[in-house]
Write a protein that binds this DNA or RNA. Structure first.
Lengths: 151, 151
DNA sequence: TTTCGTGCAAAACCTTTGCAAAGTG
DNA sequence: CACTTTGCAAAGGTTTTGCACGAAA
């Protein structure tokens, strides 16, 4: 169950993208075709995806990759997206589901991604806050060699 | 106590660099001046440092940055160093103290680094192994705005 | 209409690669 | 001596920036 929207089709009325668009408006960001297309892909295919991967998936709704970079950054800043770092020099983005947040296991060989639906870093965040840090966040990714690649 | 070598000077006989050099030899890597210089800096100042930061710190013992990149990679592969990823597009390295491993709090403003001497990701690694992954590792870094930058 | 987003081209950045020369064991 | 490592130069790949044009509220 890496995708909690599996109960609905692509046109599910309360699809997360609507909430995301509202946040954009509330934050003074504009709702544009490229942004809607990007969010739709991220909502449907879950990701996380890099700018380049998104670009390739946006067939006719395609826009320049630069626009994707800029929009991903803008949408991350207002909390609509979350940036993942798999340590290969490429940033990937996925929907930010707020507190209900999870992590990934990345296969070092085939680069496949599986979701681990738990987070154990609360105690670390708490420690950081006790040391006086504000706006504390964290990144946590697990790496390994997946069963298929291990034979 | 972010640095557990604070009890000794730079020439402490059982300084970690000696053990590191032995590992290099045992793995068939050569012990060269640039490598010794890099390890000395990492042992003394703890790090983690990027290739560029190391390069700047290696005054007269300086070598090409490319050599640093290659050596860091080689020494990471044999387990002497550990690579950290602070999500800013730059890789940093520090000594690998084996199982006794820790994490960092990175200030998003001034980029200062503090050590959190705990690791809580064992349960996640276990989950990954149960899913059939092998050679499981993880990265975990905490970000925030440090007290000095928060005013 | 005013402000923000986009496209295109070019730059910035960090990291990697190729090859001949030098160093290590 | 055989093999690894280094330096230099150049390439690679991802992400960012500048600026004029176009689109959203």
């Amino acid at each position: 169950m890496p995708d909690d929207h599996s109960h609905c089709g692509h046109d599910c009325p309360d699809h997360p993208i609507d909430g995301a668009l509202e946040i954009l408006r509330a934050e003074g960001l504009r709702v544009t075709e490229p942004r809607k297309a990007m969010l739709t892909i991220l909502a449907r295919e879950h990701g996380p995806f890099s700018a380049d991967e998104l670009h390739k998936r946006m067939g006719k709704a395609g826009c320049d990759v630069v626009t994707i970079y800029r929009s991903l950054q803008a949408m991350e800043e207002v909390g609509v997206l979350r940036r993942c770092d798999f340590g290969d020099g490429v940033y990937r983005y996925e929907f930010n589901h707020g507190e209900h947040h999870h992590h990934h296991v990345i296969c070092r060989v085939c680069r496949s991604v599986e979701t681990l639906d738990v987070c154990v870093a609360d105690s670390l965040e708490r420690m950081a806050r006790q040391k006086g840090y504000q706006k504390v966040t964290h990144t946590l990714e697990v790496f390994g060699v997946c069963p298929k690649c291990a034979e």
